[in-house]
Design a protein around this nucleic acid. Structure first.
Length: 853
RNA sequence: GGCGGUGUAGUCCAAUGGCAGAGACAAGCGACUUAAAAUCGCUCCAGUGUGGGUUCGAGUCCCACCACCGCUACCA
């Protein structure tokens, strides 16, 4: 830390103002019904992705997003809005539990310590959160309602006629458990032996766990699932009405992975069973030269003649032995075995062989494909490896040249395809589907990549399920039984088997003589799926959110989303943001919410890189600790620097000298009002005076109000700061300095550097009029366009687009007089000597372009 | 491999299709100072990754390529 004297005395006042704001409740949002609720104010709900309180503390990446939202929150307060700007903790999760296992400390203790640390760090940055609304997902008063929402899911189904969730009591079929939105499944799941838990598809990357990078294998286990697939269409179409980055919408659409195509039934030679395949290219049916089933396909045993049985069993064994990691590693080499069975192609009655291969996945489509090696790369590779026939049935529009070796997977014209010959690919598709349907051998259909959400984990540190098992069947607890708190346990280590750690709490597990509790817990995502709702009404003991609070904070007219602005990192594009939308829609369908979408406007902050341009990491040694920056340069400098680095959405490298730059700027602002006297104390500057602004000063001031206002609205904080630097450069040396400039400027700076502004504001209010109260609660200034007008404008004079001279004309001159003035210029006359003018283009206020023949 | 994003001064970054520079960092010079720091003032530097195209006019729009970053990956 520097021992030199600070350029401005931030250590003397930053902590003081933080304390003052907190004690005064300066940033408290009011709900309808509160005594000081203002009915005339508009609501503004600006939300951060609440952090997981890790032991490492706050990262400069957190600070970036949190500063952006804090600026918006403070800006909207100054505009008079009722601003909801809350903070909380996503505190269940694997790292806390693993740390607890390592150190023997209960996760509740370490989590509480980390939360206290995070809260202290956030408060030291002056963020204007309404701390009276703080929540933690691990608090029983909070997860009470997480469990309640699970019961809503358990007790609901999506009625196919309305395509909306409703009470399970409206279901008239025989097996309600087959349609519940929360259900039990025995399908193969992602099991991570190292972590001792199962994981959602979204948590598995390259066959490894997203947390820790441990190998993940597939094995069948009894697990709770959430039927997110019932919402695929709405999760896609409702993206349209949201003000989100297109790239994030695209990520979600791709993750949901909608594919239009057809299912086609291939009968099997000598057998009653048939194989149904899914294809997006039914127009290539005539080019299908073999079928492939996934090794786990249920028909494999049935269709395999005894002669082949051994080879098939051996292959299946080798596949299941492979972890997902190995399967992806070996992606290039296609493997497979002929089953010995043959299928009949329904379009031409051709007899084609049936193979099994692990490049066909059991979970997608029907788990079986028709292979068209001439027009699908994977099929082509497989057919080449195993010497299977390749038949071309689509002619490319353009000759493929040398690439006769490869396959053509684009669209073109059907050939060698009987009734489809001569048709373009889209027409061929729409002709063959009705043809298949008429003959009962196929139908048009849509499949999705999105699978149901695996919702249970074999962990201790998570929400217990409000479920009881008795005689092998499950039933829900009632809302009166909530919350279900986890048992106090000394030993919460994973058991090393699929048996969850809660099984060791035998007292807790036993619910009655014959019934026992569900032993799994919910995944970390559960708590973050609805926390934004709880912020609206965090203390309500009766409901997860009151009707009034929900309608007020989440209601919007004309748009589907409730939260006005949501800022966070891209890493949640397909996890949290998809899960939260799903829960929100279920609660909406069940009548608990008024909007169909949770987040209207979403912004992703870019990643802050180390000063070497690399991702910050401990191993690279390029991590910047926000606490150290605050200690050396102050909270305002850190906030301002992170906003000045560049566009919010972009990745940008850290630069300590850049921090010094904004620090010097803040010191200049300080010296606009303050002067250091002989004794080395800061006193109000004698240059300050109630003085009329010059027209040049007034122009800069109002241009600054305009630019900062517009740039905050568009989240262009870096250019807003740049404009405030222009203002400061203009005014630091002005003598006398008009107080009016500070009255209007300080509120502009206060969302960015709130401590500094608050301090100057209070020092000025002691001596001058018009600075009363807190700067954080003053008013946002407005600008006057008239003050921005200048008397004369310089026009560029171009010949054929090249600048050749300049021209000063009075503001507001019409095109004709500008043109006249341009031609009156003797320099121009010289250049134009003997040339023919073809065209004159005049851009008002900017330039004259003379086009010569 | 696919998708998305970004390429502008030594560096970070600005520029509704209209004079490439708002701001900052770094560098240099000067003022103040016994000196230094701090502060103040001034100065320097690119024709916008490459190649085409559209246009009176392109950093900006279109096409192709290159580089870097991010996401995704046998999804039929």
């Amino acid at each position: 830390m520097s021992v030199t004297r600070k350029n401005y005395p931030f250590p003397e006042f930053e902590a003081r103002w933080q304390k003052h704001w907190l004690e005064a409740g300066a940033f408290r949002a009011t709900n309808p019904g509160d005594p000081d609720f203002r009915t005339d104010a508009r609501k503004y709900f600006v939300l951060d992705m609440f952090p997981y309180p890790s032991g490492d503390g706050l990262h400069v990446g957190h600070v970036e997003g949190y500063t952006a939202t804090d600026i918006l929150a403070r800006y909207h307060r100054l505009k008079g809005d009722n601003v909801l700007h809350p903070m909380g903790w996503d505190a269940f999760g694997l790292p806390a539990e693993q740390y607890a296992i390592k150190t023997g400390q209960h996760p509740r203790i370490t989590t509480q310590r980390n939360i206290d640390n995070f809260r202290g760090q956030l408060q030291s940055l002056g963020f204007s959160y309404d701390w009276s609304r703080e929540i933690s997902t691990t608090d029983p008063e909070y997860f009470h309602w997480t469990q309640w929402i699970f019961l809503q899911l358990y007790n609901a189904w999506v009625n196919p006629t309305t395509n909306r969730a409703e009470s399970i009591s409206t279901y008239t079929g025989e097996d309600p458990d087959s349609v519940r939105l929360a259900f039990v499944s025995d399908k193969p799941v992602n099991w991570c032996p190292e972590l001792g838990t199962v994981l959602a598809n979204e948590e598995v990357v390259d066959g490894k766990s997203e947390v820790g990078g441990f190998p993940v294998e597939r094995r069948p286990m009894r697990q709770w699932m959430l039927r997110i697939t019932a919402y695929t269409e709405r999760l896609i179409t409702d993206l349209d009405g949201l003000d989100w980055p297109e790239s994030i919408k695209l990520l979600q659409r791709n993750w949901i992975g909608r594919s239009e195509g057809a299912e086609v039934r291939f009968s099997l030679e000598g057998l009653e069973e048939a194989v149904t395949v899914f294809t997006t290219r039914p127009d290539t049916l005539f080019g299908a030269t073999y079928l492939v089933l996934a090794p786990e396909h249920p028909l494999v045993e049935t269709i395999t003649p005894s002669a082949q049985a051994e080879a098939i069993i051996a292959y299946k064994k080798s596949c299941s032995a492979k972890s997902d990691l190995e399967r992806t590693d070996l992606a290039k080499e296609k493997t497979g075995v002929f089953t010995g069975a043959f299928a009949i192609n329904p379009v031409n009655d051709e007899k084609i062989p049936v193979w099994i291969a692990d490049y066909v996945l059991t979970g997608y489509g029907t788990g079986a494909i028709m292979a068209v090696p001439a027009h699908d790369e994977r099929d082509h590779e497989f057919a080449t490896t195993f010497n299977l026939p390749i038949r071309s049935v689509v002619r490319a529009d353009e000759p493929q040249g040398e690439k006769t070796q490869g396959c053509f997977s684009g669209t073109g014209t059907a050939v060698n395809s009987g009734l489809l010959d001569g048709l373009r690919t889209p027409e061929a598709k729409s002709k063959i589907i009705p043809w298949l349907e008429e003959r009962g051998v196929g139908r048009g259909t849509i499949t999705y990549k999105l699978r149901d959400w695996l919702f249970s984990r074999q962990r201790y540190w998570g929400e217990p399920f409000p479920i009881i098992w008795e005689n092998g069947s499950h039933r829900p607890l009632t809302p009166e039984d909530l919350p279900v708190e986890p048992p106090e346990m000394e030993d919460f280590k994973p058991t090393g088997t699929a048996e969850p750690p809660l099984s060791k709490a035998t007292e807790w597990v036993r619910y009655s003589e014959t019934a026992s509790r569900e032993l799994n817990t919910m995944p970390q995502w559960a708590g973050s799926c609805w926390y934004y709702l709880r912020f609206c009404d965090p203390k309500n003991p009766e409901r997860f959110i009151s009707k009034e609070a929900e309608q007020y904070w989440m209601g919007r007219t004309g748009t589907p989303g409730g939260v006005d602005l949501y800022v966070g990192g891209t890493e949640h594009a397909v996890l949290h943001l998809l899960y939260a939308r799903f829960w929100h829609k279920v609660l909406f369908d069940l009548g608990h919410l008024t909007t169909p979408e949770p987040f209207q406007r979403l912004v992703n902050q870019g990643m802050i890189l180390g000063d070497d341009g690399q991702k910050m990491s401990k191993s690279r040694g390029n991590v910047v600790n926000p606490d150290a920056v605050v200690a050396e340069y102050g909270a305002d400098s850190l906030r301002l620097y992170e906003m000045f680095m560049g566009p919010l959405e972009h990745g940008k490298p850290w630069s300590m000298t850049g921090v010094e730059g904004v620090y010097r700027f803040l010191a200049r602002v300080w010296r606009m009002a303050m002067r250091e006297n002989q004794e080395g104390n800061w006193v109000l500057s004698e240059d300050l005076a109630e003085q009329e602004l010059t027209s040049a000063q007034r122009r800069v001031l109002h241009a600054t109000i305009k630019k900062v206002t517009q740039d905050i609205e568009s989240l262009s904080f870096n250019t807003a700061i740049s404009q405030m630097m222009i203002f400061t450069n203009e005014f630091t040396n002005a003598k006398p300095r008009p107080l009016e400039a500070l009255r209007l400027f300080l509120p502009l700076l206060s969302p960015f550097a709130p401590h500094l502004v608050e301090e100057i504001w209070s020092l000025l209010s002691a001596k001058f009029a018009g600075f009363g109260g807190l700067a954080s609660q003053s008013a946002w200034p407005s600008w006057n366009e008239d003050y921005l007008i200048v008397d004369e404008i310089s026009y560029a004079v171009q010949i054929n687009g090249k600048v050749r001279g300049h021209l000063i004309v009075p503001t507001g001159a019409d095109k004709e007089s500008v043109e006249k003035a341009a031609f009156a210029d003797p320099l121009l006359a010289e250049i134009l000597e003997g040339k023919e003018v073809k065209k004159v283009i005049i851009v008002p206020g900017r330039l004259v372009n003379i086009v010569l023949a």
